[in-house]
Structure formats: C-alpha cells, structure tokens
Amino acid sequence: MQRITISLDDALLDFIDRFGEGRGYSSRSEAIRDILRETAAREEMQADASAPCVAALSYVYEHETRDLARRLTTAQHDHHDLTVATLHVHLDHAECLEVAVLKGPVAAVREFGDSMVTQRGVRLGHLHLVPVEGHAHPPHKPHK
C-alpha cells in the first residue's frame, strides 16, 4: 500500500469526517478508499456495457394505478433471465414497495430498471448496480 498526501479545502475535509463518522470508519483513509472504490466501480461499468453485474432495483408504486401491477409483473416475467428475486411490501392501503434483485450485463439491467421505474404510477425508483467478477454471459435478448 502506498501513502500519498492530498490537499483538500475545509468543506471537503468536513464532508469526509462526517461521512466517516456516520458510517463508522476507523480512519479518513478507510473512508476515502471506499469512496474511490465506489467511483472506480461505477466508471468501469460505464465503460463496458456488457460487463456482468448484480443490482438492486427498488421502487414505490401506487397499486391502484390502472394495470400497473400486472405490467410490472409481466415485465419481470419477460425478463426472467435478469430477475433473480423480488420482495413485495404493502406500505399502506395505496402504495407498495418492490425490491428486485437483478443479474446480467450492465446495459440489459439498466434498460430493464429504466423500463420499470418510468411506468406511470411508479415513483422513487432507484437502481443500485454492483460489478461482479467472473465470466460474462451472452448478450441479453428480450422476449417478444
């Protein structure tokens, strides 16, 4: 491991200290290493759309929106090769939270995630991508 020296303005140093304390890091170095690892992983996935990844897709939706629950379920069935598992939670009488674990090429996972969270009646959608090491699978071919 190499030691480096960096210069930071007060605002960035305050952020790193708050971030580190909030997450329970034992040192600034550990906090900065994790920030850099996350940024590096995100950049690598941007560079290679065929790279394998796993992802957590979460979204809140209004279950009374016309045909929305059916459309979301159909989309997951149509992409069964990407969908590993789904958790469905009833938040109240009107809204549901779903969390889908996905696995596949970055581009296919992103495209599927975008198609889910842009449905009318879906809100607060978020896709968290995580790169994985290992062999790549053939490119995703959506069902017709």
Rank of each mutant, 00 (worst) to 15 (best):
H90G: 02
T74V: 13
L68Y: 01
Q76D: 04
V84R: 02
L87P: 04
T83D: 06
R66S: 13
L72K: 02
R71V: 05
L82G: 05
T73S: 15
L68F: 09
D67P: 03
T83C: 12
R66A: 10
H90M: 12
L68N: 06
D92P: 15
T65H: 14
T74F: 11
L87D: 00
H79L: 07
D78R: 15
D92R: 06
R71Y: 05
D67A: 13
D67E: 11
T74P: 06
T73R: 00
A85R: 08
E64F: 05
R66Q: 08
E64P: 01
L72Y: 03
D81N: 12
L72C: 01
R66N: 00
L68M: 07
V89S: 12
A75T: 03
T83M: 10
V84A: 01
D81K: 05
H93R: 00
R71I: 07
V89K: 11
H90A: 04
T73F: 09
L91F: 00
T73P: 06
D78T: 11
D92S: 11
L82N: 00
H80D: 10
H79I: 07
T86C: 11
A69L: 13
E64C: 06
T65D: 10
L72I: 15
L72T: 00
L91Q: 01
H90L: 06
L91V: 09
A85C: 15
A85D: 13
A94T: 13
L72G: 01
D81C: 05
H63T: 07
T73H: 14
T74A: 15
H63C: 13
L91M: 12
L72A: 01
A75E: 11
H93F: 07
H63E: 10
A69Q: 11
